[in-house]
Computed example of a mutant assay.
Amino acid sequence: MRVGFIGLGNMGGRMTRRLVDAGTPVLGFDTDPARAAQAGATAADSVRAVVEGSDAVLLSLPDSRVVEPVVLGPGGVLESAREGQIVIDLSTAAPASTVRIHGELGEAGVEYLDAGISGGAAAAEKGALTIMVGGSAEALAKVEGVFAAFATTVVHMGQSGAGHTTKVLNNFLNAISLAATAEVMVAAKRAGLDLTQVLEVVNASSGVNFATLNRFPHIVKGDYLTGGLTNALMMKDVALYVDCLGRLGVPSLSAAGPLAAFGLAMNLGYADQISNRVVDAIGDVAGGTRLHTTEE
């Protein structure tokens, strides 16, 4: 199967590298032409060139506002797609948009899989991502070998939109645990507690979560684990969650906390820095508190 990849940034570039290192040539396109070479892909000069030269086209783009014109706009995927092709959207996108794109591609005989990914840059580099997929089970079976290069867990969630819905829900839990843990750790610092001991206790108690286990043991030493989602992207994901719940008729009662935390981080100049720096934004308004004394 010939593989094309559109969007070779933080995550797309890492997944492309995994494919290439596994022996799968990749035809890649990005608005930054240098990224194809960095990821080991053969550079294409347009979206059309990727589509025409591939059987499976993977997308890794910021959000639906970018996905829609890339797929449906002039020079986009739909214009060049052919019957039997499979388009795999690895972006974090609005489920309602995903379902609409699925319908338009389906009319052209093209399969569209919404494949939310989780695990971040570190898991992408190790080939240990989790993928939650919506769309045809038959199409998914055809691209299992593609996913195997960068994922260890692939779950078929159901019909179109199910993968991206699951991703939005997962990302909200990620956001709320990060924001809440950041607040708690700043409070612990202000209280004069030993932060390593605080994490030891929390990780053996009911407050344990992904952030306490995997993020803050590094952050308290001054390592912010750069390379993951920025505060701006985390804010976007929380907004997607609120929109998703609104469409489902479910009250988003817990969204105010992370919206406030990541909104604060953006307004204090951390928008394009890794979302783990939300702890510094909270620290800024708590008297300039930092969890560590060693600068990056």
Results as ranks from 00 to 15, higher is better:
86 I>T: 15
92 T>H: 06
119 G>D: 08
78 L>Q: 14
112 Y>S: 12
125 E>V: 15
114 D>F: 08
63 D>M: 07
74 P>L: 03
45 D>Q: 13
98 T>P: 00
33 P>V: 15
75 G>K: 11
63 D>I: 14
42 T>Y: 02
97 S>V: 04
130 T>P: 01
47 V>I: 14
110 V>Q: 06
99 V>F: 05
46 S>D: 11
115 A>N: 07
47 V>K: 04
52 E>F: 02
116 G>S: 15
94 A>T: 08
100 R>Q: 10
50 V>W: 01
57 V>D: 01
59 L>Q: 11
102 H>K: 08
92 T>S: 15
44 A>V: 08
133 V>K: 07
79 E>L: 09
126 K>N: 09
42 T>H: 10
95 P>S: 13
130 T>D: 04
46 S>T: 12
124 A>P: 02
66 V>S: 07
75 G>M: 13
39 A>Y: 13
126 K>R: 15
86 I>M: 12
82 R>T: 08
91 S>K: 07
69 P>Y: 12
117 I>M: 06
71 V>R: 06
107 E>V: 14
131 I>K: 00
128 A>V: 01
83 E>C: 08
46 S>P: 03
74 P>T: 10
92 T>Q: 03
42 T>D: 08
113 L>S: 02
61 L>P: 03
85 Q>T: 02
39 A>R: 00
125 E>F: 00
49 A>F: 05
62 P>L: 15
113 L>F: 13
76 G>D: 06
127 G>W: 05
43 A>G: 04
61 L>H: 02
121 A>V: 14
38 Q>R: 15
65 R>F: 09
76 G>Q: 10
103 G>Q: 14
104 E>N: 02
28 G>F: 15
30 D>T: 12
84 G>E: 09
44 A>N: 04
81 A>D: 05
122 A>L: 15
82 R>H: 12
108 A>I: 01
78 L>G: 00
41 A>F: 11
67 V>H: 00
78 L>S: 08
38 Q>I: 10
104 E>S: 05
